[in-house]
């Protein structure tokens, strides 16, 4: 019974099936909002599914210079990393499927996997555009990863726990303390956008310069899974941010699920707004933004949180 329940949680809800369906829905909402903000009609609701299944049915071309093993393996590794990270993030209420002291580190580690796979995929595609895209991916990663880690770890200083569920639990009991973390929340939103390589941080995939960066040579199934894993990554990241920075829970499971959707969709709205109103930054501008402004802000947040913690103790 125990095992069955666990399997249900990991595979169906709130596990893999929920993640992938919500990921497609999130892509639709993102594209629709983006279109509405540009005064367009936007796609129909089934378009993300259609994109996925169409790519599944298409021919897969791997050209002679490329490394076939890596090209095929990377999308799966990326998707696996993202899906594993998701089971440590609370969806209903404050308890994730699995949790232990320190799982926030695991989540951040698993969320770095898609970026590394993007890099390897681009590098082993052996195409000029893909190589440039890959080097931009890795440069950008060194820019946003540090402020992202810092601003996600800052709230855990007050909560005095290193597990995502623990942090949510603590802040849902003391919702007012969440206000202290507002600057970190802002930093988190910007760095999450950067991690998803969406405008203004879409230099790795800049269509007008390097076609589509690391994905240039991708076709068929591998491309389908890469796109799916990018959608899932978005959902996992917004769930993580909402679990840490928007810890408002009611205690009732149904209302909590509704609250989860309200919170994640609100974050998705902000991310879409950001991508609509901004233009692309160059990689060096991204690095400057992250290291000159976001890292000091996150550092300040950590110091403030340490003081608050000392004061509370």
């Amino acid at each position: 019974m125990e095992v069955l329940q666990m399997l249900f949680k990991v595979l169906l809800f709130p596990g893999f099936l929920f993640l992938t369906s919500y990921a497609f829905a999130a892509e639709y909402i993102d594209r629709k909002l983006h279109a509405r903000m540009q005064n367009r009609k936007g796609p129909k609701w089934y378009i993300p599914f259609a994109d996925f299944f169409k790519l599944i049915g298409k021919q897969t071309i791997i050209h002679d210079d490329a490394h076939a093993g890596i090209i095929k393996a990377m999308p799966v590794v990326s998707l696996a990393g993202v899906a594993t990270a998701f089971i440590y993030i609370p969806v209903v209420g404050s308890s994730a499927v699995f949790s232990f002291e320190g799982d926030i580190i695991i989540v951040l580690y698993f969320l770095s996997l898609p970026v590394l796979t993007q890099f390897l995929a681009g590098w082993y595609s052996r195409s000029l555009y893909a190589t440039i895209g890959a080097s931009r991916v890795i440069t950008q990663m060194f820019a946003y990863e540090v402020p992202l880690f810092m601003c996600l770890l800052a709230p855990s200083l007050i909560a005095n726990t290193w597990s995502v569920s623990g942090i949510t639990q603590y802040y849902s009991e003391h919702p007012l303390y969440a206000l202290i973390n507002l600057p970190a929340f802002a930093v988190a939103l910007i760095t999450v956008q950067s991690k998803l390589s969406k405008a203004p941080f879409d230099a790795p995939e800049a269509e007008t310069e390097i076609v589509s960066g690391p994905y240039v040579e991708y076709t068929g199934r591998p491309l389908a899974f890469f796109r799916m894993s990018a959608d899932c990554e978005e959902v996992v990241l917004i769930s993580l941010v909402s679990a840490i920075f928007l810890p408002f829970l009611s205690g009732n499971a149904v209302i909590d699920v509704i609250l989860y959707f309200v919170k994640t969709l609100a974050i998705l709205f902000v991310l879409t707004l950001m991508r609509t109103v901004t233009a692309r930054l160059r990689v060096n501008q991204t690095v400057t933004l992250c290291w000159r402004y976001l890292v000091p802000a996150a550092l300040l947040q950590m110091i403030v949180n340490l003081i608050v913690r000392g004061w509370l103790a």
């Binding site: 936007g42 378009i47 589509s212 040579e217 991708y218």
Partner: peptide, 21 residues
Amino acid sequence: TPRYDLERFGVVKQGSPRHAD
């Protein structure tokens, strides 16, 4: 452009021939 908006039909303009139908 917003007046015709091909994305209504799921049409996306791609840069790479590998992605195009």
